[in-house]
């Protein structure tokens, strides 16, 4: 690995004896400035395509602005926000859906992931096979998965309705109902993310020193007691982390509700499963109302940053406990 070749060391010693000022200056320049060059690509890309658009969103959100007439953009102050917050039932509908989807996804997902993680945390044969198996849903594409589930949840020919029908429960029009459509979406999200969280939890479980369990075993604690009184408390920050990932992920949920409705951005005929991100997409790229869309984006951003900030505080508190 040390590919620094011997001939070069000879060159370096000869450079030391002669007075090569240029070489010295070059060396100092190299040591002092080249690190900035190496990290520059990230900051340039992030600055131009990440930060700048985000900041500019705040600016656009104060304007009335449509795609086709950039000259026609004009300043409206906080009008977009007052309209959103006080006169827009669609916005609050989307927020409400985000909250109910949060309940339907986050809680089952975390409980299931904990259960799977403690199964994986045994002495297992073919460990890698099982770990890969639970992660499989996470690597498949959202679009493909949503199309597959849209078929499974299909009203007339879906496998799930065929099964329900066979048990005499009758068919459900999954897309049409508020509860049923959100349950179907929650199944997709839970299916996709549970395995990922299970692996993160498994890593956290394995980071708990074995001596803690040994001491507990000597004291006569049962496996169940050990799980609730040692494993869970020592994984608190991992659980909080997963909750936050799931929460912010929910606010960004877009592909599932869009494709579940067959590409219609309203999230169902009654907007029964439109999420915040989907409402942003509908406003900005179906109706091309950039100003109003930007205001939605800003409110979503504030919500996500609030959740992340609360998470940070909670996690720090847990760590210092």
């Amino acid at each position: 690995m040390t590919t620094t070749t011997p001939p070069r060391s000879g060159a370096a010693t000869s450079a030391d004896t002669s007075p090569p000022r240029r070489r010295d200056r070059w060396y100092r320049w190299d040591v002092r400035l080249s690190p900035y060059l190496y990290i520059a690509p990230y900051f340039v890309i992030f600055g131009v395509f990440g930060l700048y658009p985000l900041l500019y969103t705040a600016w656009v959100s104060l304007q009335e602005r449509a795609l086709n007439d950039p000259e026609g953009a004009h300043w409206v102050g906080l009008d977009n926000y007052t309209r959103l917050l006080f006169h827009d039932p669609y916005f609050w509908n989307a927020m409400g859906n985000t909250i109910s989807l949060w309940l339907l996804t986050t809680i089952p997902q975390i409980l299931l992931a904990l259960w799977i993680a403690q199964l994986l945390n045994r002495r297992l044969r073919s460990r890698t096979l099982f770990r890969m198996g639970v992660l499989l849903p996470n690597v498949t594409s959202v679009a493909a998965v949503t199309l597959i589930f849209a078929q499974l949840f299909g009203r007339d020919f879906g496998l799930i309705n065929l099964a329900l029908d066979a048990f005499g429960l009758g068919k459900i029009d999954w897309v049409a109902g508020t509860a049923s459509s959100q349950v179907a979406l929650a199944v997709m999200v839970v299916w996709r993310w549970t395995g990922y969280h299970a692996l993160v939890f498994l890593a956290a479980m394995q980071a708990i020193p074995g001596s803690v369990y040994e001491a507990a075993t000597i004291d006569g604690a049962s496996a169940r007691q050990q799980f609730w009184h040692i494993t869970i408390p020592m994984m608190r920050s991992a659980i909080v982390f997963a909750t936050i990932i799931s929460t912010t992920g929910n606010m960004r949920l877009l592909a599932e509700p869009l494709l579940f409705a067959g590409g219609v951005a309203s999230g169902g005929s009654d907007r029964q499963f439109q999420t915040g991100a989907l409402y942003l997409y509908e406003t900005a790229f179906r109706q091309f109302d950039f100003g109003y869309g930007s205001a939605i984006a800003m409110l979503l951003l504030i919500a996500i940053l609030l959740v992340t900030g609360v998470n940070y505080l909670v996690t720090r508190r847990i760590r210092t406990d």
Binding site: F49, G50, Y52, L54, R252, L280, A284, L301
Partner: peptide
């Protein structure tokens, strides 16, 4: 930071 929220100016 959720980059995709800057999607309109981008």
């Amino acid at each position: 930071i959720p980059h995709e929220l800057g999607v309109i100016p981008l």
